[in-house]
Design a protein around this nucleic acid. Structure first.
Lengths: 114, 114
DNA sequence: TTGATTGTTTTCCATATGGCTAAGTATAGG
DNA sequence: CCTATACTTAGCCATATGGAAAACAATCAA
């Protein structure tokens, strides 16, 4: 199991903001232009563009400008990488029920972690 | 589909750091004390404690102090909430193959998003 | 060609983040 | 009681983040 996935830093950071998660939700339904995506948010365009930039840097979306219009789409693969990390963690703790039981045996019975 | 899950802000933010992800991986194997967890990291304890604090605030771990020793354990449920959000996103884009196809029809065939 | 649209660039700001050192507290052990 | 252990608290610092306003491009449409 490798320890360092620097790409995940950017992916999780990008997801740690409600505006950006909402953009991901929207792009999950279909590609869209920057101004279409910006409509629901009470935010100046340059501020919104920063979010788009964070999403694109993280690899969660890609975009291409045609004429004046920049169209964005989701990159499923990157979303899947985050999902995979979480699934790996689940695998870890699901696979250690035995060790946990052993650990609990060594605690006095009324000393529970809150 | 609800739009605002403020808890996810903290969860994804907590996961956006390699130190904290490594702590989660370790706690997936078994509960551990702060100093046990800190061993692999070349970092002053107060700095490390901040990471523990971020993890605990996010709900990804819980901890309890007994005597001088603070023992931490993972909170699977919170990890699962993040996983669930990602799975919901997958559901969205897996359920829209038809709409995507329709959208692509409207693009000139050589205008592909990079 | 003249506007209106659709971004983009620049500059600025307040706050958060991730690290440090130094000094403090509280218990377990001898 | 004294000391070592295991955190905690309190400051400090540099950089990143999320927001704003203002001014600049570039293109499409009449």
């Amino acid at each position: 199991m490798e320890n360092n996935q620097p790409a995940l830093d950017g992916v999780f950071h990008a997801l740690a903001d409600p505006t950006r998660r909402a953009v991901i939700e929207q792009l999950g339904r279909s590609p869209a232009t920057v101004s279409e995506l910006a409509v629901p948010f009470d935010m100046a365009l340059p501020s919104f563009m920063k979010h788009i930039g964070v999403l694109e840097d993280s690899g969660l979306i890609s975009s291409k400008k045609v004429g004046r219009v920049r169209t964005c789409q989701i990159k499923q693969k990157t979303l899947t990488e985050a999902e995979t990390w979480l699934e790996e963690q689940r695998a870890v703790w699901e696979g250690r029920a035995d060790r946990l039981a052993a650990y609990v045996e060594n605690l006095s019975s009324d000393e529970e972690l809150s």
